[in-house]
Amino acid sequence: MAATSTPPESPEVAMIRVRRNLRYYLDQGFYYLTMAFALAIAITLVWIVIQIGLTAIPAITQFGLGFLTSTTWDPVQNIYGILPQIYGTLVSAIIALVVAVPLGLGIAIFLSEDFLPTYVTTPIAFAIELLAAIPSVVIGLWGIFILIPFLRPFYTFVHRYLGWIPLFGTEPRGNSLLTLGLVLAFMILPLITSISRQTLVSLPPYLRQGAMALGATRWETILRVLIPAGFSGIVGSIMLALGRAMGETMAAAMLVGNSNRINISLLEPGSTIASLIASQFGEAGRDQVAALLYAGLVLMILSLIVNILAEIIIKKFQNVER
């Protein structure tokens, strides 16, 4: 310490020196508090996986990976497998995408082009966003009492004339994978529409001008230049929608029929991972809870993969453009 020979500090220097008073600590504390809270969200994400994984350990050690390929769900014997649920989750999500992707992309184009004046398109876009705000339990209720009776004659018609296709090969019941898929399609439609629309709107205007100046019609410009240029944003929106469809719980529990079987026919009742958890958890005993948590872990991992891929794809698109 050379403090002995230090000359006395001028008052001006002393004024600007860091003072460790209350004000300073408040500021530092605030900074670290906000940072901790920001990190909390990342920690929560990891914590969810770990916590559910840890609690599911009894089931994981007992059933191993065979859990994913077994079709037995027997609470009496305590033997569990979720192949029918994985099948149902994927099939209903695929039906939803098959319906919602062309629909959503078409609407995104329709709303991002000036086919109609903005005082018409803005309310349409907002109405589609509102569709996303409807609670899924209300959609489920509506599905049970309004949509299923409404769809029944169509299902009968499809079965009668297309019954030779295995997909429609069984007598239609109201609750089925097809019903769930159709409802999921409308639940994910807003997501596909809004992200695809943002993507198309954010494309640089010179792309459109360049194509138009070469004598491309408006639709040739859209299909050959704008959509390829915005492709990754659109794929990202589809991935997000896939994740949403796979995890949707209430509509699934209320409309899919919760039958623990794999049937090639889409008109048969089925089950999804989420609907299994929702419908069984209430009455589950100890071992069954562990199995349901294992199922939850599978769903969590599936949704993490899909969502992380979606994020990466969308980020990549933004980086290319900016």
Binding site: I41, A42, T44, L45, I48, I52, L240, G243, R244, M246, G247, E248, T249, A274, I277, A278, G296, L299, M300, S303, L304, V306, N307, I308, A310, E311
Partner: peptide, 12 residues
């Protein structure tokens, strides 16, 4: 993480 967490199913 926030974006991924908002895509995690509510039942989780």
């Amino acid at each position: 993480s926030a974006n991924v967490l908002s895509g995690v199913p509510a039942i989780i």
